[in-house]
Simulated assay, not measured.
Amino acid sequence: MNPLTRIFGTALCALSAPLIVGCGGDSDKKIEVRIAPSRAVPPGGETVADWRRVATAADRARLRGWRQAWVVALGKVTSADGLAVLRADPSLFDPDRVLPTAAPPAGAYRCRVFKLGANGTAMRNLTTYPAVDCMVRDEGDVSSLYKVSGAQRPVGLIFPDSGSRAVFLGTMVLGDETKPLNYGQDANRDLAGYVERIGPRRWRLVLPQPRFESLLDVVEIVPKP
Rank of each mutant, 00 (worst) to 15 (best):
D176G: 06
L169F: 05
A103H: 04
Q152S: 12
R153T: 00
I20K: 02
D81T: 15
C13Q: 12
V54T: 04
G24Y: 01
W66K: 11
V132F: 02
N2F: 09
S27N: 14
L116D: 01
S144E: 05
D141T: 09
G170E: 02
A192H: 00
N125C: 10
R153E: 01
V222Y: 05
G175T: 05
P180N: 04
K147L: 13
R60V: 15
L191V: 11
V148L: 11
V21S: 05
A84I: 08
I221A: 05
P37F: 04
R124G: 14
T127P: 03
S27E: 14
S38T: 15
A80K: 15
W51V: 05
S27P: 03
R67V: 08
S16V: 10
A14T: 14
R110C: 11
A106Q: 12
G163I: 11
V71G: 06
F93G: 00
D96W: 13
E46Y: 07
I158N: 02
E177I: 01
G22L: 03
D190R: 00
T178I: 12
I35K: 04
Y129M: 13
A57T: 12
A80S: 14
L12M: 11
L215P: 00
G44K: 05
G117T: 02
A40W: 10
G199C: 06
M123L: 13
K147T: 05
W66Q: 12
R124T: 13
R97D: 06
K29P: 08
I198R: 01
S143L: 11
P208W: 00
A103T: 15
R87D: 07
D26Y: 03
Y146N: 03
N188Q: 12
A57L: 15
V155Q: 01
A131Q: 06
I20P: 02
N125Q: 09
D50M: 09
R165Y: 08
L207C: 07
A118W: 03
L12G: 09
R110I: 13
P3W: 05
V54M: 06
V41R: 10
R52V: 09
P210Q: 05
E139W: 04
P90R: 08
V77G: 05
A69T: 10
G24Q: 04
S144P: 02
L191R: 01
F114E: 04
L191H: 01
A80H: 12
R39P: 02
A88D: 12
F159R: 03
P37D: 04
G82K: 03
R62N: 09
A11I: 11
P154W: 01
V173E: 03
A122M: 13
V142A: 06
K224L: 15
P130K: 15
D50W: 07
A108S: 15
G44V: 08
D141E: 13
P95D: 10
L4Y: 10
S38Q: 15
G193S: 08
R211E: 10
G117H: 02
E213L: 15
V222P: 02
L215G: 09
R39E: 11
A11T: 11
A166W: 03
L99A: 14
Y129Q: 10
T56L: 13
L19I: 08
D138K: 07
V167N: 03
S149D: 06
V132Y: 04
